[in-house]
Amino acid sequence: MLATHSTSQRRRLQAVLEHASGDKRFKILEAHMKKFQFRHDALIEILHKAQELFGYLEDDLLLFISCKLKLPASRVYGVATFYHFFTLKPQGAHTCVVCMGTACYVKGANKVLAAIQEDLKVKPGETTADGQLSLLTARCIGACGIAPAVVYDGTVTPRQTAESALEQVRKWVTP
């Protein structure tokens, strides 16, 4: 890089690296990269780990990854935004994933989703104002035999209705 081009970006990276030295999670993340010998093809694996550690992929975190893997920042950002699984915004304390796959859809998953949307005033992909719940949708979680399925905080729950779903999510949000 040309010395004359040193700007705010540079300073930002410096700040990130400084901050990283005091945060254990960055150490774990770096160890994970080392396991893959900092190979470029491990980018997605690294992003998975980063999201697991930090909950979401903040810009500074992506900058850290691009620096350590020696990849252009645009590539890291391009990959992180291509895949639905990665989120660049903080998530709520709880998550509710409504499966909108075919089997769940024909069995009324859209009614379950609409009820939650209506009741909590959130759209899929958003988090409630109190930060308690993120409402998400999935394209089949492979539990079609028990459709419609909803995943509450990682637990797959079978045969949901608007009522059962509301009962569950209302426990989490401040009324």
Binding site: M100, G101, T102, A103, Y105, R139, C140, G142, A143, C144, G145
Partner: peptide, 8 residues
Amino acid sequence: DEGDPGAF
């Protein structure tokens, strides 16, 4: 990858 929704 089994992405087809409704297949497991």
